[in-house]
């Protein structure tokens, strides 16, 4: 299948520190890729670069064959490249229904409408309730975000991303900060992502990675040191070495 998302020779440094060093990868619709790597490896920076939130020093980003390196972050979202954040960024005073409603309206180019309430727009509400139900947030639809648990906020991040109907979804540690007991719901949500969506997930929880991904990319010090099947990643000498510096023993990866 032709790639929906391509990154070629992406580079970025902060001062003297090279954080993204000649990163290239390509994804097809339906891909389930996990991007892993020690803390500070440059994973979030990679997401910021490809989404247009940070200008690269050099390199190219292509979406559905179109080069978008010079398209701004908003333009990339509109072309179907959507991300979630490592630390949730939600509107504390707004409800889950409003979050998803706003995303749906924005996607349809109606977020600038000066009259009417989305609560009274049946098609919008149909989509809002479908998404919230799917993610188990229906009960909380009209609570303020500040009143709901962090795990549920993480699910809402995913709901907002899905409401934008992305072609490529970049999830930056979707389970970070969620107690182990609650990660099941998130894993379920990941399993239920639309089959034709290309998903790249950054994650530290290796159990989650192995259950989710069909392909694993390992980033260390800004360089891709492994790109292959999950089964092979723990056998790779360079990966073990990269992790040894950070974890007490490599069995963490195994």
């Amino acid at each position: 299948m032709s790639p929906v998302f391509e990154v070629a020779n992406l580079k970025r440094s902060f001062g003297g520190l090279v954080v993204t060093n000649d990163v290239s990868l390509s994804m097809a619709p339906g891909d389930r890729v996990a991007l892993i790597g020690p803390n500070g490896a440059g994973k979030t920076t990679f997401v910021n670069l490809v989404t247009g939130n940070l200008p690269p020093s050099s390199g190219e980003v292509r979406l559905g064959g179109e080069t978008v390196t010079r398209v701004d972050a908003i333009g990339r979202v509109r072309r179907g490249l959507v991300r979630s954040f490592q630390v949730t960024r939600l509107f504390q005073d707004m409800t889950p229904a409003e979050h998803v409603g706003l995303a749906v309206l924005q996607r349809d180019g109606r977020a600038g409408r000066l009259f009417g309430r989305f609560l009274n727009m049946t098609e919008v509400m149909a989509e809002v309730s479908e998404l919230l139900e799917k993610l188990g947030l229906a009960e909380l639809a009209y609570r303020k975000v500040r009143e709901i648990a962090y795990g549920q906020q993480r699910l809402l991040e995913i709901a907002v991303a899905l409401a934008l109907k992305p072609k490529v979804l970049l999830l930056d540690e979707p389970a970070a900060g969620v107690p182990q007991s609650d990660t099941g719901r998130i894993e379920q949500a990941l399993a239920d992502l639309p089959p034709d969506l290309a998903v790249l997930m950054i994650e530290h929880d290796m159990d989650l990675v192995f259950r989710f991904a069909k392909r694993v990319i390992v980033l260390a010090a800004g360089t891709i040191i492994f790109d292959g099947l999950p089964a092979d990643v723990t056998k790779d000498a360079r990966v073990r070495e990269a992790y040894l510096g950070n974890y007490a023993n490599a069995s963490h990866v195994a």
Partner: peptide, 20 residues
Amino acid sequence: PFGMLCRGIKEDPLRIRAMG
């Protein structure tokens, strides 16, 4: 919807950009 968009911008413009 526009009023709702503006409330979002007030709280986190970067998040609004990430919504396109």
